[in-house]
């Protein structure tokens, strides 16, 4: 049992307890398949395929392989990811990371050396796009080109009548 190596790595009945410590850990040789959903933080050191969903932090360690669409509150990616990564808050991509898929997040940190292939979408951009039609202010009101042509035709009709 684990108690065999108690002095080295395990010790039961610890005095320090705090509910924040509880995490899901996928060890280096472990392979998880299916809808991997956790209420707490997830640490991935092995392989995960399917979907990954957590309302807290996802940490993919160096050497890990995730072939799945990811949804998390925050993420730290140090391993390989194949699939879309949707993060509500912050994503940190380390130098050893390789991501093949789209990323959406609020805040992004990428270390030099990281490899990303995909579209990055960040929420919170307020700039207007350049493809909208040009507008001209006329006598306190805004008129488009179409409005102006209509106005010219009306003036010609008035001349003919006179």
């Amino acid at each position: 049992m684990f108690q065999k190596n108690q002095d080295e790595e395990t010790q039961q009945y610890a005095n320090t307890t705090s509910p924040e410590d509880l995490e899901t850990v996928v060890g280096p040789s472990m392979q998880v398949e299916g809808d991997f959903v956790s209420e707490g933080s997830i640490i991935v050191k092995g392989t995960v395929s399917g979907t990954v969903k957590t309302s807290k932090l996802l940490r993919a360690e160096e050497g890990s392989k995730i072939i799945a669409n990811i949804k998390a509150a925050d993420a730290v990616i140090c391993g390989q990811v194949k699939g879309s990564v949707r993060v509500n808050q912050t994503i940190e991509i380390s130098a050893t990371a390789q991501i093949l898929g789209d990323i959406s997040c609020k805040s992004l940190t990428v270390q030099p050396g990281a490899l990303i292939s995909g579209k990055i979408t960040m929420s919170g951009i307020e700039m207007q796009s350049a493809s909208k039609p040009a507008k001209r202010r006329v006598a306190g009101s805004v008129k488009t080109k179409k409005d102006r042509s209509v106005g010219t035709r009306t003036q010609n009709e008035v001349d003919e009548e006179s």
Binding site: F2, E9, T10, Q11, Q12, Y13, A14, T16, T17, S18, P19, D21, L22, E23, V25, I43
Partner: peptide, 19 residues
Amino acid sequence: QPFFWKNSKAGDYTVHPQD
């Protein structure tokens, strides 16, 4: 019974009973 896994590399993990 709580289980305490001590790991110097990744930090310490404590599992809580009755959660």
